[in-house]
Every structure is written in C-alpha cells, then in structure tokens.
Design a protein around this nucleic acid. Structure first.
Length: 217
DNA sequence: GCGACAG
DNA sequence: ATCTTGTCGC
C-alpha cells in the first residue's frame, strides 16, 4: 500500500478516491471456498493479530489459515475503521496458499456513512468478491425482522438500501449483512445462512476469531 | 446543544 | 475491540 493516511482528512480523501472502484455485479452463487477475516487486539490496544481462514463451502472444513501479528495502522474512528485493520489483513491474505473466492469481513461494506466500509475497501484492494457481516449497526434503520431463521429486513440509510438485517438463528439477535464488492446482497445473505447452520455468526467469522485470539499472547 | 458511533 | 462473575436457559 501507498503511504498510509495519518490523519482523518487524509483517510477521508483515500475513501473518496477508492469508493468509485466498487463493482456492483453479482458474484459466485456457490463459491468452493470462502475466507473469514478477523482481528484481535491486546488489552492496551498496542498490538494485534490478524487472521484469515479459508473454509471449503461444501463442509465448512478449514482449507487454509494465515495469522500475522502487527500494530493498529490507525486509531479507531467510526467510519474509518478500515484504515486500522486493512494493512494487517492484507499481510495475512498474502500468506495464504489457497485463494479464497469470497471474502467475508467482520464489519460493514456499503452500510457505511460514505458507502465504503471495511468489506468494500478490502474487496476493491484485492478485487475479490467481498461482503461484511456485522454484529451491530453503523448506519441505517430497519423494520422488525421476522423471528425465524432466514428472515430479513432491508437496512435503509438516507433512503437507500445499504444492506440486510438477517436472522441467522431463530431466537437470536440478527446480524447486519452488506455488500462489499462484486457480489449481490441476496447471494451474500444466502451464503451467510449456509455458513451459519448452528450459531449466530458464520463459521468463517467464528474460526477466524479463534485463530487471531490464539496468536495474541 | 444532544445523541450516535463497525471493531 | 477488551476488561470480567454470575446467571438464566437448553
């Protein structure tokens, strides 16, 4: 990556320059491999471990894992979250042996104030299909989601649908799915459901979460 | 001025 | 994100 932004103004300028590169076309309906990306931080926030885990979509078995240690590349600022995690995640992606067909990020894609959250950012930089599955909202409003697994409600911000609030398990809080790059919302939701046969979060996120925590000492 | 605010 | 005991529920 080029000189990394060091101020909020510089980061906003980068987002402005990159967001036009988001490609809105549908991606693979049944990718053979999917990657989960996540980062764990040390208690004092000075160190981090970034993990990328590639799963075989067919049986959710682990095909490859890469974990790297590093430092946050930017302070945590809502809306500029990607600048904190992208460098470490790209490092981890570079160490993979198996090329994932889709990236699934911990955070949002287009469900972002400027429509360029972490999932969109990583998608553009890697040019891989990507989307985000967040645990809480950043922007948008939605109507109550049906109680059954699979039920979804449009996540709307400033009049436009920026994602979906999806119930992955009956009786648990829904997750926030939003497109990042080269994949549509319907396929992102369908994939999320396939990857979450038993728990609230997709296995990609769960396995990556465990991997990066283990590498933080 | 008062909230809201991915991880 | 992370700090953390107990507790309610299946």
């Amino acid at each position: 990556m080029q000189p990394w932004p060091r101020t909020e103004e510089e980061a906003l300028a980068v987002q402005d320059a990159l967001r036009s590169r988001v490609v809105v076309e549908d991606g693979p309906a049944l990718p053979a491999t999917v990657a989960g990306l996540d980062i764990a931080y040390s208690a004092d926030d000075s160190r981090l471990a970034a993990a990328v885990v590639v799963l075989n979509t067919a049986d959710l078995s682990v095909a490859d894992t890469a974990v790297v240690r590093g430092v946050p590349a930017f302070p945590y600022v809502p809306g500029l979250f990607a600048f904190r995690e992208v460098p470490a995640l790209l490092d981890a992606l570079d160490r993979l042996t198996v090329r994932p067909e889709v990236l699934i990020c911990d955070g949002h894609g287009l469900a972002h104030p400027r429509r360029f959250g972490l999932a969109a950012h990583l998608g553009v930089l890697t040019d891989l299909p990507s989307f985000g599955v967040g645990k809480t909202r950043l922007v948008g409003d939605w109507e109550p989601v049906g109680a059954e697994r699979g039920a979804r409600s449009a996540l709307v911000d400033a009049g436009e649908t920026v994602g979906a609030v999806l119930r992955t398990q009956t009786g648990v809080k829904p997750v926030f799915v939003s497109v990042g790059h080269r994949i549509g919302l319907d396929r992102a939701c369908a994939l999320t459901l396939r990857l979450a046969p038993r728990f609230r979060l997709p296995e990609t996120t769960r396995v990556a979460d465990r991997a990066c925590r283990d590498h933080l000492s």
